[in-house]
Nucleic acid binder design. Structure first.
Lengths: 111, 111
DNA sequence: ATTGACACCTCGCACTCCTAGGTATATAGG
DNA sequence: CCTATATACCTAGGAGTGCGAGGTGTCAAT
């Protein structure tokens, strides 16, 4: 019952992924772990959400990928931000701030 | 192009409506105006979102409604919170705070 | 030999809100 | 009087978005 592992807030997935990738080249599987870790285990990014999102971001030219070996000697697809992706991330973050503030305005309106 | 009137953030509509209704009995049409006004014209709540949401909230026992006359002498359906609705609103607001903070954690992670 | 973690993938669903239509009444302007 | 605008309600269908559930293959440890 106590749903302590929450789903990603709708509309924020692309932004969160772009932000994680902005920290440095990283492969998909590690992205979901990082999101979970940085959010202090609050968000749980499902693989069924992750991979389609990565493909979409790549198709839209916001991410670029190449296959490399991980620390553990395995092949993995590493993503990095394109310039377009960086711009997009900045725009999404600004939009998020404005939206979050608008929600806060409503929630903090006293009767 | 410059989409300065934003859509409601997915997943927050019920909460925002409940919060507005919590300020005092109010009819549907006025709810959308209040949301627009309090959010400083940032959110634009469409009628195609508003009315189905109100019916859903009523069906779930979170809102109760009765028809009354407005200031302008027109009949309108006034909603008020039920006790269940008030609890639900509090739970949703807490959940929102945690989610917004988790998003902030990720967005504010420096490389 | 089997389990579990790593690392990738896709299909179809469920949920959520919007678009685009509609009805009806009251008020203001020409 | 007639029309446009604002008020006030409604619905059907669709587009978007993330998830659940399934799958493949590799490597390390038991």
């Amino acid at each position: 019952m106590n749903e302590e592992k929450a789903a990603i807030l709708k509309g924020t997935l692309d932004m969160l992924i772009l932000k994680i990738v902005a920290l440095g080249p990283i492969h998909g599987y590690a992205i979901s772990q990082r999101i979970q870790q940085i959010s202090k285990d609050y968000f749980r990014l499902q693989q069924g959400s992750l991979y389609p999102a990565l493909h979409s971001l790549e198709n839209r030219g916001l991410l670029a990928a190449d296959w490399r070996a991980t620390d553990t000697g395995r092949e993995a697809k590493f993503y990095k931000l394109t310039p377009k992706g960086r711009k997009h991330l900045e725009a999404e973050m600004e939009s998020w701030e404005r939206t979050a503030q608008a929600v806060a305005l409503i929630l903090r309106t006293a009767q």
